[in-house]
Nucleic acid binder design. Structure first.
Length: 425
RNA sequence: GGAGAGGUGGCCGAGUGGCUUAAGGCGGCGGUUUGCUAAACCGUUGUACGGUCAAAAGCUGUACCCAGGGUUCGAAUCCCUGCCUCUCCGCCA
């Protein structure tokens, strides 16, 4: 959420930035609503001030056991008037809040202005895609053939866009998660968090998923409980409504969780394999940073995520998302894309964003410098480090052999009792 | 799931309809005293949305005692609903 005063004073800039994101102009009535709201607010508050004074006078008269009935009648009439005005003021206020909540974050000046994902800008590449001397297979063929991945039984017990991992397949998923968590906690200075996989709607509002993107989420029936679409939601909300000391920043947290997404609107996209599932595992990196450092923190967070791929020897590239492709709450996003032989292209495996104060304002996440002075909103960042399921398939596809077996990357062998190769049992 | 007790400022804690603009204390900040530190003493203290102002400061209004409704001229206080915490019982990995 943007600051109301900022939007009021920079309405043209905000409209311009929304149009750069490819969004329609929803702020045509903003000035009018804002003006009407204040008009009724001022009027209502004036009547309230008079009523408060009258109440004091009534109290004084009653204490002296004198008649106050005239004042009481006048005060009652004031009350009626106040109620009328407040209803109007509140109607305009909720319209204004709705408008404010629909405004996405302002992209950072370094973000390329574009019309689609085609305008994303490549920042760097690491590693060389392997040249195969045979026709590489996709993981949805390799996995079932190796007996480590089962779509048919997943469809039976649950439905489409779910998978069952079996034997070494399940162990590989667990090994990857542990490898990532160990890397980030031991070498990158993150503290591990294991949060609930279910959150309330206030948390989803804090990160910007609600109210606008309810359709992307799974909601539990009969309760204000939702399955998390990413660990970003519970972890960013850990310090909601709290004030952090500046000297303790940045706070760097990492969390392994399952993630649940309805993938509504993704019909026909990535229907084969495990690229796009309703449930997947992810290791998430989250930072709470000082505003003046947040872009440096974004660079280091992205590097921390890249390190996973480097250790696993998986080729990748980093792109800056254009204004048209970036998320609602983000001011700048780097996507890390891993090389996938099955699609002969780079595919997203991590998304690293600086939200500046956008989430902090919604979640009331503040900092105080030196234990004194005014509080300010801190900056939040997060990124996948990495999506475990997509890493799983990247390993399977990139390390496949002509005979259908898969070589285990060296970095993972300690997590698999030294296993060097996954073969048909 | 059942029964009971609670939720008050950064923290502790008083407060059963109007001299409460929330007592008192702790902490924080500023000051006085002082070789230094400590102590003592004095003062001060939050958030949001508005108004005034070119702007800031200042001044000023409204709201905020878990949340949302209600009663009342007037609510921290009374009523209803929800959420959360604690104690006991039951159930459970």
């Amino acid at each position: 959420m943007l600051d109301l005063a900022f939007v009021r004073e920079n309405l043209d800039v905000v409209k311009q930035k929304m149009s750069e994101r490819g969004l329609p102009d929803s702020l045509a009535d903003f000035e009018n609503i804002d003006r009407e709201r204040r008009k009724y607010l001022v009027e209502a508050e004036g009547f309230k001030a008079r009523r408060n004074k009258l109440s004091e006078e009534i109290a004084g008269l009653k204490r002296q056991r004198q008649d106050a009935s005239a004042l009481i009648i006048e005060s009652r009439q004031l009350g009626d008037r106040v109620q009328e005005l407040e209803v109007k003021a509140q109607a305009y206020d909720s319209q204004l809040q709705d408008l404010l909540r629909q405004i996405p974050n302002i992209p950072h000046p370094s973000v390329p202005v574009g019309r689609s994902a085609d305008d994303n800008r490549e920042v760097r590449r690491w590693g060389e895609p392997r040249r195969f001397d045979f026709e590489p297979k996709a993981h949805w063929d390799l996995g079932p053939a190796l007996g480590i991945l089962d779509f048919e039984r997943a469809a039976k017990i649950t439905g489409a866009r779910f998978a069952v991992y079996t034997g070494v397949g399940a162990r590989l998923e667990r090994a990857l998660a542990n490898f990532m968590l160990d890397l980030h906690t031991r070498e990158h200075g993150y503290t591990e968090v294991l949060p609930p996989f279910i959150v309330n709607s206030a948390s989803l509002f804090g990160t910007g998923n609600l109210p606008k993107f309810a359709g992307d989420l799974f909601k539990l029936e009969g309760a204000d409980y939702w399955l998390i679409p990413t660990a970003e939601v519970p972890v960013t909300n850990l310090y909601r409504d709290e004030v952090l000391e500046a000297e303790n920043l940045p706070v760097k947290l990492c969390a392994w969780t399952a993630c649940f997404r309805s993938e509504a609107g993704a019909y026909g996209k990535d229907t084969r394999g495990i690229i796009r599932q309703h449930q997947f595992q992810k290791v998430e990196l989250v930072k709470f940073a000082l505003p003046e450092n947040s872009y440096d923190e974004l660079e280091s967070l992205t590097r921390n995520a890249e390190m996973v791929l480097q250790r696993l020897g998986l080729p990748y590239r980093v792109v800056t998302l254009s204004t048209a492709d970036m998320g609602f709450s983000s001011a700048k996003t780097y996507d890390i894309e891993v090389w996938l032989p099955s699609s002969n292209s780079y595919r997203e495996i991590s998304s690293c964003s600086n939200f500046e104060a956008f989430q902090a304002r919604r979640a009331n996440l503040r900092l105080r410098r030196g234990g004194k002075g005014r509080t300010e909103f801190l900056h939040t960042l997060n990124g996948s480090g990495l999506a475990v399921g997509r890493t799983w398939l990247a390993v399977i596809e990139n390390y496949q052999q002509a005979d259908g077996s898969v070589v285990v990357p060296e970095a993972l062998r300690p997590y698999l009792d030294g296993l060097e190769k996954i073969s048909r049992p």
